[in-house]
Design a protein around this nucleic acid. Sequence first.
DNA 1: CCATTGACTAGAG
DNA 2: CCTCTAGCCAATG
Length: 110
Amino acid sequence: MKPENQNFFHKVYDVARQIPYGRVTSYGAIAKYLGMARSARMVGWAMNGSHGMEDIPAHRVVNRKGLLTGKHHFDGSNLMQQLLESEGIKVEDNQIIGFDDYFWDPAKEL
DNA sequence: CCATTGACTAGAG
DNA sequence: CCTCTAGCCAATG
């Protein structure tokens, strides 16, 4: 087994863990940073596995529109939104208000 | 092995 | 901004 072959899942976890408090990013941004911009779906899949596994702030990862597409995968029904609001992020109708203002691009900031 | 699904995105209208 | 289409790739049945 090669270190390069490391589950890209692990890479996703690393980036997700580096998301600063009160910030959010998109699956595509992470995918792009990992060099798989066309496989944003895989990032979502990785998040699915990271759920309840490590300390992955998956609630800080949303789709490109700032929509909480993955809130359904969390324990409760509104846990994701509450976590975001807890960090000072306004959420309405499953969508982040001023998403562009909170957006954190790993390929840019990291 | 083939078909379907999915926490997505970019482009065109 | 919305809707539709196509591309993407792993997991599941």
